[in-house]
Amino acid sequence: MVRGNYFKYFFVLSLSLFLVIFIKPLHAFAASQDLTISPAVSQIKVNPGQSVSGSFLIINQGDGTYSFNVYATPYNVTGQDYTPDYKAIPGAVDVSSWFKFSIESGSVAPGQTEKVNYTLSVPAGTQDGGYYAVAFGQTNNPKALIGVTINERVGMLFLMQVGDKVVKKGLLQTWQSNFFQSPPLTSNIKIENSGSIYFRANFQYKVSDLFGNTKYLLNGQKFILPQTVRNLSLPWNKSPSFGLFKVSGNVNFLGKNQYLGTKYVLVMSKAVRIYTGIIISLIIVSYIAFSLGRRKRKKQNHRKKRN
């Protein structure tokens, strides 16, 4: 009888474990929305009064169907860190009005692609120069019943040159890397565009140890808008908590290559600084104590000799 009870308990326990482990509890979760646009950037040259046509793709790489909108906005930046600004600047040309799209709204199933054709018409009389806009694809989620609804949008950047009378001018403003830093080791390059049209700057940034071994190498490219200074912040996210390094590199824009002179950087995390401070303090205290002790012994020896 007792053996039968044990069997019963064992069976119930095993069944419970089976249900917990192998029968997955139901989770309510939202299907992921993956909105892709291609290409990401378009560089166009067009004359005033002319039109140019092209297309881009809206791609759904997620696992749920979603509806989307397509529209254009101007593109500006604020600050040297280039925070995007999609508002029209008062008094400036509203570039977004130049665009016409074949699709302004639609829906796309998982794994499907929607091709959007656009026509870009530059009004006659538009002043020669650079103009910038973004064509957005944006998900259009139904309003959530509870909480915060998330919409995603991705933009295709249009870097446009209108006409031929443009001025390309720029300079390397600063190359900075503080000697004493907490991780991550970070250097900054500032490039100024004093012309009337954007240009692209290619850069290479290298971090090496004192023996010349490369620890981190970054090759990058950024566009610089006219009448702006762009700060390229270059963090080495995997820098150790302590070490002495050399940073260097070069920047190439407007047909010129400029070498970034080698700078030395001492990286010390907060913890390392504290420990180093404690060790140095102990050394100093020990030295003082030793010196005082030695002076005392000298005095004692001197007294003994006199006596």
Partner: peptide, 15 residues
């Protein structure tokens, strides 16, 4: 082709 994509869950519930 150059591409850029973004994805997220779509809704955050904070009862």
């Amino acid at each position: 082709s150059s591409v850029i994509s973004v994805s997220s869950t779509g809704t955050v519930t904070l009862n």
